[in-house]
Structure formats: C-alpha cells, structure tokens
C-alpha cells in the first residue's frame, strides 16, 4: 500500500497533511480504471469514464474529507456515480433508438480485459454489472468490507451477501463453460 493510500485512513491527519490531487490521481488511477472496465466491459468507455471521474474529482477536491473515507473509496464513489450516469444515458439512448442490443459488449471481439482467460471473460460477461461491481471492489481492488459497502451505499452484511452470490454465480458459469 502506498503512502498516499494509507494517509486517509488516519483520523488524526489534518487538512495541512492532505496529499495533492496529482499524487492521489497517480496512486489510484489504475484502481479507478479497473473498476470501470469491470463495470462497463469496454476499454474505451472505461477510459472516458475514468477521465470524467478525475475531472469530477478535481472539481470537488475541496470537498474531499480524509476523515470520512479514504481517497480510493472516495474516487470509487465518484466513479460509480459517473458510471451510473453513463448507464442511464445509454439506457435512454437505447430506448430512444429502440435498440435492445447490449451496447456495452466489447466491440469487434476486442477484449477489455486482455489478461483473462476466455472462459472467465465469458463468465464475467454473463454476470450483471452489480455482480461484477462487487467482485472488482472486493477481489480485484481488494477493498475491505466497510470501504466496499461505503462505495455501494449498502451495509457491510449486504455487501458480503452480494459478493457471495456473485462469486457463486461466477464459479457456476466458469464450471458450466468448462463442461461445455
């Protein structure tokens, strides 16, 4: 864990000790991008949303309070809000254009998650965004239960339950794919 990452957790830290936005952005860019890639399963969209998230973060940087939540949690909350705005806009657009095809699937077979095996990527694709979201927060970004629940806006118990179900479904999908 980097120094920037560990800083916000301490309640004794004062405003004078808060890191610069550039340092926070450098430390957590990968996390925000990974979160959004898993949410959207589209590298290009994830890049745009990541940029939007950091723009929003810069605008609201004065509101960031390290005593209430860590910088990574705060950025993930902003990223979630940005992603939801994107999904709502996409849904409105789909409805308007009367197209029901999923727009968020990677275009032309290009993988947003190139390191994953095809079986795991297919299994992830079959999960809902809510399931992928809890997996990326708890497994990929390794946020603790409280931080993940904070980002999702639910209780820690509900977060654990959601994670358990998501992993169960993921494991079923991977197994089914292996048998096929």
């Amino acid at each position: 864990m980097s120094a920037v990452e560990s800083l916000p957790a301490g309640r004794h830290k004062t405003c004078a000790e808060r890191p610069s936005f550039a340092a926070v952005a450098a430390a957590h860019l990968d996390d925000v991008y990974r979160y959004l890639v898993y949410m959207t399963r589209d590298g290009n969209v994830a890049e745009d949303l990541t940029a939007d998230t950091f723009e929003r973060a810069l605008r609201n940087w004065h509101r960031f309070d390290a005593r209430r939540a860590g910088a990574r949690t705060w950025l993930c909350q902003l990223a979630r809000s940005t992603a939801l705005d994107h999904f709502r806009a996409e849904e409105r657009r789909r409805r308007r254009e009367d197209r029901y095809a999923r727009e968020t699937t990677p275009a032309d077979g290009e993988s947003a998650l190139p390191g994953l095996s095809p079986a795991l990527e297919r299994a992830l694709a079959e999960l809902s965004a809510a399931e992928r979201e809890v997996i990326v927060l708890r497994i990929v970004l390794e946020l603790d239960g409280d931080a993940a629940a904070n980002v999702l806006g639910i209780s820690r118990t509900a977060c654990s339950t959601r994670l358990g179900r998501a992993l169960q479904r993921l494991e079923q999908k991977v197994s089914a794919d292996a048998l096929a």
């Binding site: 610069s20 936005f21 550039a22 952005a25 450098a26 860019l29 990968d30 925000v32 991008y33 990974r34 890639v37 590298g43 890049e47 990541t50 940029a51 950091f54 723009e55 810069l58 940087w61 947003a112 998650l113 190139p114 390191g115 994953l116 095996s117 795991l120 997996i135 497994i139 990929v140 390794e142 992993l167």
Partner: peptide, 26 residues
Amino acid sequence: LEELRASAPPAPEHLRARIDQLAAAE
C-alpha cells in the same frame, strides 16, 4: 480469484498522460 487479481488491467499510458495533464491544472 487468483486469475482476476493477476490479470487486473493497468490504465493505458495515454490515459495516464491525460490524467496527469488534468492533475496539473489543480
């Protein structure tokens, strides 16, 4: 789970440059 953790994609370099440019405007 191990595969998910190991294959977490890093942000592309051009995105990093874009965010660095944004952060410089702080």
